[in-house]
Design a protein around this nucleic acid. Structure first.
Lengths: 342, 342
DNA sequence: CTGAAAGCGCTTACAG
DNA sequence: CTGAAAGCGCTTACAG
């Protein structure tokens, strides 16, 4: 059993292969530069010694970290895991490692996590939490191309000059509400996310647009939530307060829709008989919830992959920041919406 | 806006402070070794230059990676996120960074991920997936204390000489079944995890023990599942095949319990009226599922913290491997189990 | 196609 | 309490 500090180095390989360390390095990094015979000798020596590159040395020499930081608001939220998987796949193909930082919901840890960039522990960052103060941005190191190697995912960072990957949230919210309207609903309320959140604002806009275009402006009713299951449970009481109780509730995410269904059940009401529910995101549990939740599907894996691809381009000095990409969402009809005869 | 390759180094700080790089390093690492006046001068220079340590250089010099690998079978599984949070908290306090590797359910990627250890990209590993072939273990570098810096979490790795943190799964499964028995159930079936899984085996043992001790050995009925929601849905058909349909089903995890509830609902049956359900793990969604799932709670955050603490000890050469620690579980009664009059 | 040599940014044993 | 110097393990421009 070899000791930690006894790992074979490039020196050992060079000695055994009878070449210089430069040749070993070349064989490993750019084999096409090395004569076949030499290459084979080196590869044999690598095998014989069990040599593995020392990443710290390589990174120091290459002036990079070999890793990218992914900041999520909450690791415990299933919405992010598929995005992470997409990111990780592309990153590892490119030889990058992923550092996952949980920024806690209030975003207060974001700044601390950004030290990873400043310390050179990460070469770039993917922000899934829509939070990045201007002063933090300006303190960040830039990539070779002179760009800030940071990309916002799903939640755009308002005003920041960074690239973004997500979906058209306003259009998606409108599609959700349009669906409810198509099913005959008119009194449609909206359970929104936290006020300051950019997604909240876009989804509210989509809701309002759909309602107005259908001549339902008078029925617009926005109830404040915070994306948590609990705020879905809590909204049920408010629903009863209304003089004209809505027949449908469009929730800004699936968790709140599930919470609302739970609260309704506790109050002796049923979904969709007593209230139709639309969610947003299509998280894993929405499909087998009772009843299964109709929702907006986001292509999470694709979003993660595209975001990482873009970041790689910036790191290679190929791309410019500031570009926004929206991927296709889709409407998933399940059993939480009932058709109303009109 | 400074360029990436223009970050201030310890040299710059030394020059401005009028001291040697050694003194700067000491001020940063062991301030008590430096005279106050000197220390202040250095700290001023650090502030003035905006100096941040270069981790790659530090790690190279210290012959460590400064990070630990956490292997999870599936990032998308909410069960792991709280464990991860616990791990991350302790790790970051100790100045370690976390690399999360998704091993995919079949464990086939585990070996690839172990290259992080061999490459020196990680100093140790936390295994949440119960898989580590012997030959991999013997190829791993050891820590200063001569121990293998790997700890299994939740799922013990059979036969491997590595430390472990989790709960007493057999006792927990027995407690779950005892609860069902206390509620008057006799025909209690068990939906198990995948056969080869160590947790599956322990939970089956707990189930069998509880049944036998209650004189219910004849009612033992083990249905094979795989921890997925789908296998919970699929089990419903098998339930109907039985000559004497069970009145309760103990599921080896919450996802399968939720799947079973879903399948039952689709078949026009209700939980707990037609079948009582017990889950295991107490994942986030169990509490607000309809009906809320009775289950076994695992102290996930504590498990993560303890595991990371142990790993740190091994990395510091303080602890020995091979030690097993079980934390307290608890039985959570919710509404998926009905009391049977006897 | 290959090697000698410099250097990436730190840390630390040694000497004073 | 502080500094000069060696060295961690790589990569690469330069020369041949």
């Amino acid at each position: 059993m070899e000791k930690h500090d006894t790992r074979p180095t490039i020196q050992d390989v060079a000695q055994i292969a009878g070449v210089s360390t430069a040749t070993v390095s070349r064989t490993l990094q750019k084999p096409e530069l090395v004569r076949e015979k030499t290459r084979i000798a080196v590869q044999d020596a690598v095998r014989k010694t069990g040599y593995r590159i020392n990443s710290a040395a390589q990174n120091l020499r290459r002036n990079r970290a070999g890793s990218v930081l992914v900041i999520v608001p909450d690791i415990g939220n299933t919405f992010f895991s598929e995005i992470l998987l997409g990111i990780e796949q592309i990153a590892s193909e490119a030889g990058y490692t992923i550092l996952i930082g949980d920024a806690s919901k209030d975003g207060s840890r974001t700044e601390g996590l950004m030290d990873f960039l400043r310390n050179g522990k990460a070469d770039g960052a993917l922000l899934l939490n829509g939070y990045l103060p201007d002063q933090v941005i300006s303190s960040l190191p830039t990539s070779d191309g002179g760009n800030i190697p940071v990309i916002s995912v799903c939640e755009a960072v308002p005003e920041a000059n960074i690239a973004h990957v997500g979906i058209d949230n306003k259009a998606a919210a409108k599609a959700a509400v349009d669906h409810l309207i198509t099913q005959g609903h008119q009194k449609i309320a909206h359970l929104s996310g936290p006020e300051s959140n950019i997604l909240t604002q876009l989804r509210i806009k989509g809701y309002e647009t759909a309602m107005r275009e259908a001549g339902l402006g008078d029925h617009i009713s926005i109830l404040p939530g915070d994306f948590s299951i609990q705020s879905g449970i809590d909204v049920v009481a408010q629903l009863f307060d209304k003089p004209a109780r809505p027949t449908a509730l469009f929730c800004a995410n699936d968790e709140m829709a599930m919470g609302a269904a739970f609260g309704l059940t506790q109050a002796g009401l049923k979904v969709p008989d007593d209230l139709s529910l639309m969610g947003f995101d299509d998280i894993q549990f929405a499909r087998t919830f009772i009843p299964p939740i109709s929702t907006i599907h986001q292509p999470r894996s694709e979003i993660g992959k595209l975001a990482m691809h873009k970041l790689l381009k910036i790191l290679n000095g190929e791309a410019i920041t500031q570009e926004h990409s929206n991927l296709e969402f889709s409407l998933i009809q399940r059993q939480s919406v009932r058709k109303i005869q009109t």
